[in-house]
Design a protein around this nucleic acid. Structure first.
Length: 1111
RNA sequence: GGGCCCGUAGCUUAGCCUGGUUAAAGCGCUCGGCUGAUAACCGAGAGAUCAAGAGUUCAAAUCUCUUCGGGCCCA
């Protein structure tokens, strides 16, 4: 017995049953076993940060990941199924700080780095467990760790050096908790990879050492946005997210007196504290500057800034000059008398430099440059070889050497500095100024720009020429261009991905890999405090060899702070003890190495070669061009000078239903757990699959409801329709038919084309086309094939045609389920169990253990599909015609006429029966002759004819109206015709009549694209009773359903009512009885216990009573 | 400042790469119809100067350029 499914079933509930089922039969394990040793299809999972529960936006990429893994599995490829968790970095630190109520780095150090790092690891494990559960819920088949085991491991980490047992995906593992955490995802343990694993960290060491060997690692200074409260630099990324506020600051116009010439440069700044570190003044080479006299003093400002600087006028222009004319002018800085600037050589360095970024729409058109306090300033300073002054310490307090400012906090210095300058006659003016200013995303403090020492990987020069013109030597020298070569080996989807990646690579600065924090990759750089020598250690073994101190403290621990910091080595230059730099690594190093660390690059090169490069990766592309995609490409290029992935599918953002980004603070976030339990994972997955990946998708419950209604419910209904009737007829797949109807051949043709198209689309990593094609097919299967075939399933005898119908529909449903299985794994499993597993005892026990269907080319009949398209078009026109004539479809009509060109008619000829049934007419006529449906009428134009014939006009008009169609046709061709009116010969000219087309008597028409369909609306007695009979049948059917009779219950029908209706019962008795399974029709009061209802049909009353007899 | 994506009906989208009938769907609204698989469906009506302008072409929503608007990435 096939098992119908309630179309109103709660999909989430069904999905939980399926999850249990999979678990019970070990479906995933069986799939893996089936594909073992087959050709590999390599997918590398971009690690998700295990720091919070996953959101619905993660589900998009994860749907893709699962879709293609499932698809490739059905195609018979071996797959690694390794999920990844990103573990290290500031994101986790911030959350742990919140958990612990910390406010700054000092709190962490007071708490103890070891404890803090432990908390970070625990958090990662707990959220990895959570995300594992959520991913399983989404339907992802991966080599998962048991979430409960991960949680237990997190708990065990309380005592990191204590022995414990972890039930890994490959069986129990014994060791200290810390040791086990370091081995997660290893070949012997299976499960997800964790970027905090020892192997991942040591792999990066290997990579960094290789960079160092090529001279690409260096320590540099950079000016970074810095939070004085948290004591840390923030990356550009952290500021962009939500890091700007409207703030009002005191801005100053300051005079810089010129040396060796009259007057002062006038500069403007919103950060007075940076004046202490001024080194130069920048002007635009091409802007016009003016020398002006104002209140007896002489100033230089940009011409375009005059209005702003002297709003009340009163100045006198003495001279105009270009910025470039001022280059090299020397001036006195405002704080040249302080010790630190003096020591740095600032007073001697002061001069005017040229900079193309200077504008005259803000300030004075002269920009004060302090290379220690601004990123662009620093760059300029480097170009011009200027000294650098960095005035602030970690907490934002002025260092020694700045006179009265030393010891003051930067936040408190604006007004004192203004006072000070005023006293010394250097302050031209001050004013409050409101602008968007970066703040710390954690504590809201205003950021300052601070010079810090960081470590970098050199990207190489930016050569100002097209890629094609680069010489091999230039590429060899510059990592940047090598990575570009790797990027060009990738197939980017969408295609503009390459352009974005190359743009990033062309412009990116050296890669800053350090961060002054605690939880992350321990950068393997050991530096000598005495002489500045440094080296990069490439492995744990190398460190052991070189260690001269502290190894015993480190031994047994993961390569993280603080234990790794205990290990000292000998400086190779001066022999002093060298320590590891305290910095941790950029987290994108962690994620970027996974094409090596997870594929056993260091220990099993053969395995690595089998799985590298990945055939496919997919992630949300917003931001990843400079993050994961970049890091993967960079690291693979460094190690192997090739791309680590062949195809990169990027997708857009998940927005709310109004098209806004989801933000916690806006209250429009949809949580994954809630969404999946409300709409179901399949619906969520289908929403993502049917979206163009390059666009953003709108996501919400309204959209889910629509997707469910338009796609899932029809699918369930198709299944139910088949199940109900196949059960009644006890049809099984072995009951095949020799001969298929045209309709069967058509839908099988459509089906096989669908298989072909979906296969091609998925091979092309195009879920969008695949899902849209599937939707179209379901629509046609439901709205055309089943609708037109319904009666074939209803008839009582099980003949050849009926078997053909069952056979065809079963094939369609089964194949459709297989095609859909990778997209919507739950519902397809549910239906497969209810359909295929009932029909075919040998079928694999889960749909996901099946092979992917092969298209049967020989069944694809392009001609037939074209014919059918035409028949659908004509049917639609016929229905429109009936509708415009106000004739309901239930009323049979005598005929429908189709007028069209011979080509169209050729298409329609084989399908006339179908059209006849669909339009409920007795016959269909096809013709090329328009006049079958249209008659021409001539109307006299009184204005012309009246004037011409005077009193005779009424008779002429009559004659015109009576013209034959042949005569009108001649007029239409432009010929004049002659008429006899009252014995007179009248010449009628074409312009004297208006010719109209009218439907022929009795027909209503609809037309489109040159096809006209007309139905003849005159009813014969016979047709009228047939129509009434159909109305009656429908009422009886409705009543049967209301009475909850089984579909195959026999009944007796009692009727009384209007004589016309009673007569219809008599005339159409056989028809009515057969349609309603009535063994008898009685014109009588229904007996006691009958199910009774009164109806009105076309204003006539009818009382019906049904009595159930049984089967 | 540089790079990229997107502007089609009230809303959500298709079509654009590969130019060619009267720009296609869904939602919503109005009216009518069908229904023993369907909480579905079918038909009609209303609703689009395809962001604007220019160019190429016999022909432009589609190709090119410019402008405007929205967004993203990088400075």
């Amino acid at each position: 017995m096939y098992e119908p499914i309630d179309p109103m079933v709660e999909l989430p509930k069904l999905e939980h049953e399926i999850l249990d089922f999979w678990r019970r039969i070990k479906a995933f394990e069986k799939r893996r076993k089936l594909n073992e040793g087959k050709p590999p299809w390599s997918f590398i999972d971009g690690p998700i940060t295990a720091n919070n529960p996953m959101g619905v936006h993660h589900a998009w990429g994860r749907t893709y990941k699962d879709l293609w893994q499932r698809y490739k599995a059905m195609r018979g490829y071996e797959i690694r199924y390794q999920n990844g968790f990103d573990c290290q970095g500031l994101w986790v630190e911030v959350e742990v700080e919140k958990e612990l109520g910390f406010k700054s780095k000092r709190d962490i150090e007071a708490y103890g780095i070891a404890e803090f790092v432990k908390r970070c690891k625990q958090r990662v494990l707990r959220y990895a467990a959570k995300q594992t559960e959520q991913s399983i819920r989404l339907g992802m088949w991966m080599d998962w760790d048991d979430p409960d085991e991960l949680r237990k491991l997190a708990d065990a980490l309380e005592e990191p050096m204590k022995e414990t047992v972890f039930k890994s995906a490959r069986g129990p593992v014994r060791g200290t908790a810390e040791e086990i955490v370091g081995r997660l995802g290893s070949p012997e343990m299976g499960g997800s990879y964790f970027t905090m694993s020892d192997e991942n960290n040591y792999c990066i060491w290997m990579l960094l050492k290789k960079c160092h060997e090529r001279g690409w690692i260096y320590k540099g200074e950079d000016v970074m946005p810095w939070c004085p409260r948290c004591g840390t630099a923030l990356s550009e990324h952290e500021i962009v997210t939500e890091g700007y506020k409207e703030l009002t600051h005191l801005s100053l116009y300051v005079e810089f007196p010129l040396r060796n010439r009259e007057g002062s440069l006038l500069i403007w700044t919103t950060t007075p504290w940076t004046l202490t570190s001024n080194v130069a003044v920048a002007v635009h080479p091409d802007l016009t500057y003016v020398k002006v006299r104002f209140n007896d003093k002489v100033y230089y400002v940009a011409k375009g800034a005059l209005q702003r600087v002297f709003p009340k006028g009163g100045y006198e222009i003495l001279e105009e000059l270009k910025g470039r004319d001022m280059e090299g002018w020397s001036y006195e800085g405002p704080y040249d008398h302080l010790e630190a600037p003096k020591k740095a050589g600032a007073p001697e360095a002061h001069r005017v430099i040229l900079w193309k970024e200077v504008v005259e729409t803000e300030g004075t058109g002269l920009v004060h440059i302090a290379p220690g306090c601004g990123r662009e300033d620093l760059q300029l300073g480097r170009e011009y070889g200027l000294p650098i002054i960095a005035p602030l310490d970690e907490m934002g307090v002025f260092l020694k050497g700045f006179g009265w400012l030393s010891g003051m906090h930067v936040y408190d210095t604006a007004e004192p500095i203004a006072e000070d300058l005023k006293k010394r006659g250097l302050l031209f003016r001050s004013e409050w100024y409101t602008h968007r200013y970066p703040v710390c995303w954690r504590c809201g403090s205003e950021l300052v720009f601070r010079l810090v020492e960081e470590w970098f990987i050199r990207m190489g020069e930016k050569l100002n020429k097209p890629f094609e013109e680069l010489t091999p030597e230039e590429k060899e020298r510059n990592l940047r261009y090598q990575i570009m070569e790797s990027a060009m080996q990738v197939r980017w989807i969408p295609e503009f991905g390459l352009a974005r990646e190359l743009d990033w690579l062309r412009n990116m600065e050296d890669w800053m890999i350090s961060k002054k924090r605690y939880w992350g990759l321990a950068l393997p750089i050991w530096e000598c405090p005495k002489c500045g020598w440094f080296t990069v250690i490439g492995s744990k073994e190398e460190l052991r060899e070189k260690a001269v101190e502290g190894w015993e403290i480190f031994e047994g621990h993961s390569p993280h702070r603080p234990y790794i910091d205990a290990v000292k080595i000998r400086c190779e230059r001066c022999g002093a003890l060298a320590s590891r730099i305290p910095d941790v690594g950029n987290p994108w190093l962690d994620a970027g190495i996974v094409a090596f660390s997870t594929l056993q690059y260091r220990h099993n090169r053969e395995y690595w070669r089998r799985w590298f490069p990945a055939d496919f990766i997919t992630e949300c592309f917003i931001g990843q061009f400079r993050n994961w995609f970049y890091a993967m490409l960079a690291m693979s290029t460094i190690l192997e000078r090739t791309t680590p992935f062949k195809v990169c599918l990027g997708h857009g953002l998940v927005l709310d239903e109004q098209g806004r980004e989801m933000h916690k603070s806006w209250g429009n976030v949809i949580w994954f757990d809630e969404a999946v339990e409300r709409m179901g994972a399949d619906v969520m997955r289908w929403i993502y699959c049917r979206t163009k990946p390059e666009d953003d998708v709108r996501f919400g419950y309204g959209i889910a409801e629509e997707v469910k209604r338009r796609f899932f419910i029809p699918l369930l209904n198709l299944h139910n329709f088949f199940s109900i009737y196949a059960n009644l007829d006890k049809w099984t797949p072995d009951q095949r038919a020799e001969r298929l109807s045209l309709l069967d051949r058509w839908i099988l043709s459509r089906l096989n084309r669908l298989v072909k198209v979906v296969t091609q689309a998925l091979d092309d990593y195009d879920a969008y086309t695949a899902s849209r094609e599937i939707e179209r097919f379901v629509d046609e299967l439901s709205k055309w094939y089943v609708r037109r075939s319904r009666r074939r399933f209803w008839k009582s005898e099980a003949d050849e045609d009926k078997r053909a119908a069952y056979s065809t529909l079963y094939t369609c449903l089964k194949t459709l389920l297989l095609l859909l299985a990778p997209f919507t794994p739950f519902i397809t499993e549910a239906l497969y169990q209810r359909l295929v597993r009932r029909a075919e005892p040998d079928a694999p026990e889960s749909i996901h253990l099946n092979d992917w269907p092969e298209p049967r080319e020989e069944l694809i009949d392009e001609g037939l599909m074209e014919d059918m398209e035409m028949a659908m078009k004509v049917s639609s026109l016929g229905r429109a015609a009936r509708s415009s004539g106000g004739i309901k479809l239930r009323q049979p009509l005598q005929e429908a006429v189709v007028v069209a060109d011979p080509e169209t008619l050729k298409h329609l000829r084989p399908l006339m029966d179908l059209i006849r049934d669909e339009l409920n007419v007795k016959r269909v006529r096809l013709t090329e002759d328009r006049r079958t449906l249209i008659r021409l009428r001539a109307k006299p134009i009184p204005k012309l004819l009246g004037r011409k014939y005077g009193a005779l006009y009424p008779k002429v008009a009559e004659a015109v109206k009576a013209l034959s169609e042949e005569e009108i046709e001649r007029l239409r061709r432009g010929e004049a015709i002659t008429l006899e009116v009252e014995g007179k010969t009248v010449e009628l000219r074409p312009e004297e009549v208006e010719i109209r087309e009218e439907p022929r008597e009795g027909y209503v028409l609809a037309d489109e694209l040159g096809i006209i369909v007309g139905v003849y609306t005159e009813l014969t007695e016979e047709l009228r009773y047939e129509g009434l009979a159909r109305d009656i049948v429908r009422r009886i059917q409705a009543l049967r359903k209301e009475a909850d009779f089984e579909i195959d219950d026999r009944i007796e029908t009692y009727y009384l009512g209007d004589p016309e209706l009673e007569k219809a019962f008599e005339v159409e008795a056989d028809y009515i009885a057969a349609e309603t399974l009535s063994i008898a029709l009685h014109r009588a009061e229904p007996p006691e216990g009958a199910y009774v209802k009164e109806y009105e049909i076309d204003g006539r009353r009818l009382k019906l009573g049904l009595v159930r007899i049984g089967k």
